[in-house]
Amino acid sequence: MSDALPPQVVMLPGLDGTGRLSMPFVDALRSRGLDARALALPCTGQQDYATLVEALRPQLPAQPFVLLAESFAGPLAMELAAGPLPGLRGLVLCTTFARRPVPLPASASMALAPAWPLPPLPPLPLMARLLLGRWRTRSNQQDLQDALAQVPTSVLRQRAAATLRVDVRALLCRIQAPTLNVQALQDRLLWPRSVSELQALLPNARHIAMEGPHLLLQARAEPAAVLIARWINTLPR
């Protein structure tokens, strides 16, 4: 085993993009000796995947790092990892997808356009039940509400629409970095077909399913950090 330090962990957060919901998980990684940080998504300008990838690429470190992405950010990480990233040592995907995560056609994204006359967001209790399931608490529901309140509703709707149009399946064969794919057994958001498709398209990845909801890294920060830190520590240094 080399005495070199493990690679830095750069986390791309989910739909809210703030990193606020990620802090307990990031802290849990840090407590295990990993240099971890959440990289917030820009909340101005276009929110399609191609635009966000180009905004994130220059912010990635030159030194060795692991790219970790959850949910909405998964396709961002897949596209970044498929291109030249000299410092990339590993890729961790959590509760994510390579193309639309729900059984709706891409045309349904038009209904999420900012000008469409729909309620801005589902009620918080419904979102908490969907995203946190039986792991929802007063504390993590408040964290969810606070994170969403920091982002304009138009941005959230653009990102949600982008998930119905994204398709990075053709890029997955170009990912050379060791990959860990973590899925939640009680995920009520992702379409099971999306989960099985991603597993099939990443035959060389390590695939692990954990007890937990879609917001796995928030609801089960400690056990998720143990699992992911253990895998990162096996990477060559």
Rank of each mutant, 00 (worst) to 15 (best):
Q141A: 04
T137E: 12
P61R: 00
P203Y: 05
T153G: 08
V168D: 02
V10T: 11
L118V: 11
P114C: 02
P105F: 10
A115G: 10
L190D: 05
A77K: 01
L60K: 08
L68F: 11
P192C: 08
G83Y: 03
V10K: 00
A149S: 13
A50I: 05
A73W: 00
G45H: 14
A111T: 09
T153N: 09
R136A: 11
A62R: 15
H214N: 13
A36I: 00
P119N: 04
S107E: 14
Q218V: 07
P117T: 13
S196K: 12
V166R: 10
P192E: 14
P6H: 05
G212T: 15
T137A: 15
P24D: 13
N204P: 08
P103Q: 10
G212D: 10
L131S: 03
Q176K: 10
A62Q: 14
C94P: 02
R89I: 00
S196M: 06
A40K: 03
L76F: 14
A55L: 04
V102N: 01
W231V: 03
L39S: 02
G17I: 02
P58A: 03
P192Q: 11
E54F: 04
L144G: 02
N140P: 07
A221T: 09
A69C: 00
L80C: 05
L148Q: 13
P13E: 09
V92W: 10
S107N: 07
L15Q: 06
P84F: 07
R237I: 02
V168I: 02
V151A: 14
T18A: 09
P84M: 10
P86C: 09
A36C: 07
W191G: 13
D27I: 08
L215G: 08
R100F: 12
L198V: 07
P75G: 04
P120F: 01
V166G: 09
A177Q: 10
V168E: 00
Q8P: 11
S196E: 11
R100D: 13
Q8H: 11
G90Q: 00
A106L: 12
I228E: 09
V168M: 01
Y49F: 15
L130G: 06
D146T: 13
Q145L: 15
C173A: 15
L130E: 06
T18R: 03
R30E: 13
Q142L: 15
L67C: 06
V66P: 06
L5V: 14
V168Q: 01
P178E: 04
E197M: 11
L67F: 01
A115D: 14
W135G: 14
D27R: 15
L76R: 08
I232H: 09
L5I: 14
T234A: 12
C94Y: 06
S154Q: 14
V166D: 04
A224I: 14
F65C: 04
Q141H: 07
L172E: 06
E197L: 15
G87K: 05
